[in-house]
Design a protein around this nucleic acid. Structure first.
Length: 596
DNA sequence: AGTCTTCGCGCG
DNA sequence: AAAGCGCGCGAAGACT
């Protein structure tokens, strides 16, 4: 191993790399550039290796970062390395993530380097030095060895996957890597929580929770059910209480076979008891329990935990991780908190509740957002070259067409019944996208299998190409064990591919490809604006699968809106050139997430 | 005391 | 042969 402690020696090594590809790994004194330094950089490209200690170099890593502007740096978890390059004033350094290369070939997932080295190379990594003190002036041989080894393993993993990649895989790889700067922007910006408002909201939920708890305790004692939050205790209690025939038909949980305590099951049972035994306290009990569980969900998932995260940050902003291609299909996942599961405005037990209203723009600013409307049906139409489906998406109304068949006559969207029918009809098209059969659709739409078959037949006749696309994908997966996606990547479908996944993955992936391009374009657009002194305070702050949210100065809001609309439209055309863009996106400006 | 599984449920 | 997709999180309970 070549230990480098001077800038000239680093320059000599970099000339050996000669602008080619080389694995790179940092050891840093903290996890964020704001409160730490890059101590070591390990480098390895198969022919040459080096370990750079920046401690003795005047100016440290920051003084050397620009030397990496040429070359392609193979890393694991590109967002981490790129953050340090950005902090050092070199945002353009090419960090190429070996994990994203793997995802371009196999489909998405979430894993650590150690796991991949074990699964893909069959080697075990010793990570005991990972959390050691990288600020110590005198690093141990073991630390140096560990640091160097990471670059070697990263390189070998890269070779493993690079050798299995075709030209199209490389396009998907590039797409994932290109998303990183936009993701860093979102993760650093975070979303501002109106803590006072949210505090009041929690107070309202708590009052509801207490009243429901009181109603439950009026009927059930602690001897019957010690812990009201325990589904298994409720299952035991009801199993003792109810008649055998009721127990026999009660839905069960999948693994343990307990009585299901889903809200829907409880409410159905309550309604049935109300008919069979009017005035029976069991009706009140089951309804109160369903209410209690609902409000408890809100309190535990969207209450104090969000408030606590906001209070923990000096600017009252909530910062999540957006994990690129963490889902098998390539979609983002989001965690810590998961901002992609914040409830939409709805009625919580008769009262309007809006969690999204607690997410606000800062003083003098606005939130700007667009989303793609019906993106999955659109991309299905384009992937399957189904002109009828595309026409209905662009000019007509797919859901109303299906609703008319269900109703047996044309429906009027302006009436409440018409609206309801249309909403129900959405289930049919989603069922197709999800690869559903008639039985699954029947359950979901609460109708008979015969009716469900009728709906599917209609769909299959009117949109025959889109319907057949599912079977084409199943055939491809059965033959190759992979599905080739619109961005060039492939998804490994296992040894026994199944229709539901084969039907859905390429569609969900295509929607992600469009969003990926949108984020890449929008980040580039905003960066270009900033160079001209425009949109200086605009940040991308979130994406929720088919939507982007920016926060911007009030004065910049309307132009930000136009930029976003254009970027999202252009992104769609990147993936589907020539596709019609009418009614593709809808969005607006607001002071909170709820009023966009 | 920490880790894992199961269930249920929020989102697209 | 049967099959509605993809996530993350909180709580309970089992296990180590």
């Amino acid at each position: 191993m070549n230990l480098i402690t001077t800038k000239t020696a680093l320059a000599d090594y970099l000339s050996l790399v000669n602008d080619g590809m080389c694995a790179l790994d940092f050891e840093t004194t903290s996890l964020r550039p704001e409160d730490g330094k890059v101590r070591l950089v390990s480098l390895y490209n198969g022919a040459h290796g080096a370990l750079v200690d920046f401690d003795p170099i005047p100016g440290g890593f920051a003084a050397c970062a620009s030397m990496f502007q040429r070359g392609e740096w193979i890393v694991f978890n590109a967002g981490f390395e790129l953050r340090w390059f950005i902090a050092a004033g070199s945002p353009g350094v090419a960090c190429k993530d070996v994990g994203y290369l793997r995802r371009a070939i196999l489909g998405g997932g979430q894993y650590a380097l150690k796991q991949l080295i074990s699964w893909d190379l069959g080697r075990e990594m010793d990570k005991t030095e990972q959390a050691s003190d990288w600020a110590d002036p005198d690093l141990t041989d073991s630390q140096l060895e560990y640091a160097y080894n990471d670059a070697v393993e990263t390189w070998d993993l890269f070779q493993h996957w690079y050798g299995r990649a075709d030209q199209d895989h490389l396009l998907a790889w590039q797409m994932f890597d290109d998303m990183v700067p936009a993701v860093i922007e979102m993760e650093e910006a975070g979303m501002l929580l109106d803590t006072h408002r949210h505090d009041r909201l929690i107070g309202e939920w708590t009052r509801i929770q207490n009243s429901k708890l009181a109603a439950i305790n009026d009927i059930v004692t602690a001897q019957d059910v010690a812990n009201v939050r325990s589904d298994s205790q409720w299952s035991d209690y009801l199993a003792r209480l109810l008649d055998d025939n009721v127990i026999a038909s009660w839905p069960r949980t999948e693994k343990t076979g307990q009585l299901s305590m889903k809200g829907e099951v409880l409410r159905n049972a309550a309604a049935q008891f109300d008919v069979a035994y009017p005035g029976n306290p069991l009706t009140t009990l089951l309804d109160s329990l369903a209410d209690f569980k609902k409000v408890s969900k809100y309190l535990s998932s969207f209450g104090a935990s969000l408030l606590q995260k906001a209070h923990a940050s000096p600017d009252k902003r909530v910062r999540a991780r957006f994990n690129i291609a963490a889902a098998k299909t390539g979609r983002f996942s989001c965690a810590g908190p998961n901002l992609q599961q914040i409830p939409r405005d709805n009625e919580l037990l008769g009262e309007a509740t809006s969690v999204r209203s607690s997410f606000v723009a800062a003083e003098g600013r606005r939130l700007v957002s667009f989303d793609y409307s019906g993106i999955e049906l659109r991309v299905l139409a384009l992937l399957a070259e189904d002109d009828q489906l595309l026409t209905d998406m662009v000019e007509g109304d797919v859901h109303s067409e299906v609703a008319a068949v269900i109703a047996g006559h044309p429906i009027d969207k302006s009436t409440p019944e018409g609206k309801k029918a249309r909403t129900a009809a959405k289930g049919v098209s989603f069922g197709i996208i999800y690869g559903s059969g008639a039985s699954g659709l029947a359950v979901n739409m609460r109708t008979t299998v015969e009716k469900a078959e009728e709906y599917i037949d209609f769909w299959a006749t009117r949109y025959s190409n889109a319907f057949n696309y599912r079977h084409l994908m199943l055939a491809e997966a059965t033959k190759t064990r992979r599905i080739r996606c619109v961005d060039g990547g492939t998804i490994y479908m296992g040894k026994k591919p199944e229709l539901p996944q084969c039907a859905n993955y390429p569609v969900q992936r295509a929607a992600l490809s469009v969003m990926a391009r949108a984020l890449i374009r929008h980040k580039n657009t905003l960066d270009a604006c900033r160079l001209r002194g425009e949109q200086a305070h605009t940040k991308i702050i979130s994406t929720i699968h088919d939507a982007i949210i920016d926060e911007t100065l009030l004065a910049d809001a309307s132009s930000c809106l136009s930029l976003m609309e254009q970027d999202m439209t252009d992104a769609y055309l990147d993936i589907f050139p020539e596709a019609p863009t009418e009614r593709l996106v809808e969005g607006g400006v607001g002071t909170s997430w709820a009023n966009l």
